[in-house]
Structure formats: C-alpha cells, structure tokens
Amino acid sequence: MSLMNNAVIRVEWYKLFRQSRTWYALGALLLLQVVLLLNAWYQGASLLDIFLENLKQSFHFQGELLNGHLLVYIVLNTMWFHLPLILMIVVSGMLTSEMEAGTLRTVMMTGISKGRYIRSKFTVAILFTVLVVILVALTSGILSYLIFGVGDLFVFHGALNFFESNDAFLRLFLAFAAGSFSMVFFSVVSMLLAVIFRETVKTWIVAAFFLIVCNLLLQMQLGEGWFRRLFFVNLNDTWQMFFEYTINWSAILWNLIFLAGYILIITAVGIWWFKKTDIE
C-alpha cells in the first residue's frame, strides 16, 4: 500500500472515517443489503416459478435453485441505483463539505499544492468506492451463503443459463470486480461535479440526475455500432457479460479498458478544473 504512505491521502482517509455521514452511509448500505436480500429471496422464489413452470412439464428438478448464488445475483442486479447514489453522496461530500465549511481554505493555506490535494481526494474516492464494493460483495455473499447455501446459479441471459456452483461463484466475483469499475466511474463523476458545482445539495441533485439519466439511457441501449459499444452508459453494463454462457473475455477486457479510460479522463478534467479555479 504505497498509496497509503502518502500522508495527505492518509489524512483524507482518516477524515472520511471520522465523519458520521460516512458511517451513516455504510450503515444504510448494510441495512439495504438485508432488505435487498429479503426482496431477492421473495423475487427469486417467484422467478423460479415463472421461468421453470413450463420446464416442469418435461423435467423433474433435483437440487435447490433458490440458493445463495441466485440471491447474490439478484442483489447485483438491484444495486445499480442505490449503491452509486450513496457513493456519489459520500464522495462529492468529501469535497463540497470542505468548500462549504471553509476547511478547504484552511488546507490550501498550509501550502499544499492544489493539484496534490485534489489528486488525493480522487485517490481516496476511488479507494473508498472499491472498499464499499468489497463490503457489499462480502455482506451479500456471507448473508446469502450462510442462510441459503450454494448450488447452481440460473440466470436468464438470452437463454436460461445454468452455472455450476464454483463457476457461479467465480462469475459473481468477477461481476463485482467489473462492477467496481462502474462504481468508481460514478464516484469520480461525482467528485468532478463537486469541483464544478461546489455546493453540497446542488452537487447531489446533479449527481442524482446524472445517475437517473444513465440508468434510463442504459435501458434504451442507445446508439449503433461503435458508439453503442463505447458509450460510457452501456459500458456500465459490462458486469452482465459474465453471465453469458460463454464468457467473451476480450469484449469484457476492452469494455473495462474503455471504462478505465473514462475514469482517467474524468479525473484529469476534475484535477484541471480544480487547479484553475480560485478557492472562495
């Protein structure tokens, strides 16, 4: 962790976790996990009925499909609004709260360069986001597997795909890993919005708006050809590709490379913008 050797980043990390808002956010996420798991269990049972009703005429089923893997998968599907929303609230607050309280001024008067300070904010935002994704993966996994055990995962992705337990586990793990790219994307966007809009509430509104539009555009599957492929909104769906029966590794890799490119560009714009603006 050479990153954490950087004193500025350590201070940012320390500040983040000394603020009650961060713990409220994490607490809210954990509570949501419980609610989502209940919902997943409920949804899972009815999904199985709906999907497998016709198959029951031709087949006997042996084994439990309403298991931990299915629940984690449903949680993965349902977390694409609230998780980025909470992340965006916390991450943008890291900067806007300092702007509003004036502590950003106090920091800037310590003689640290603007560039170094905003870089540390972006770094901590990314680290925090990855940590939260790991936390969500762990809590949903631990709760699901403890209560519902493991078994085959069935998903609908063009066809009814059945994955054996170990395969399912690996796919879910990779989906979380790919998902963390999307979450980091939303986090750096919210940091950029904080740099631009400066006020906490204004930034939250714009961030929520951005998130809603992204979700709508994703459902519309806008565009054709290369645009559709490279449009960041659609790239945020990359994690779904781990549930195609045959994983298209190169497509996923390219998507993640492009997403990482977007993250870098947004971060660079955020740093540039922060450096060029006065501290009020």
Partner: peptide, 30 residues
C-alpha cells in the same frame, strides 16, 4: 519552506475532530 499561515473570513476547522486532531490533520498535510 512555509512562508505564510493564515485565517481567512472565519476560522474553518474540522468540527468533528478535537483540537489536537485538527492540528495533526492539518500538520500532516504540510
């Protein structure tokens, strides 16, 4: 190395930290 220290408009501190923690946070940064 550090040429200037200052307070502008009002003393802006981390409200959620105590005095020593504030000093430490701002101290580590510089």
């Amino acid at each position: 190395g550090k040429m200037l220290g200052g307070i502008i408009e009002k003393p802006a501190l981390y409200e959620y930290l105590n005095a020593a923690e504030n000093l430490r946070a701002f101290g580590k940064i510089q």
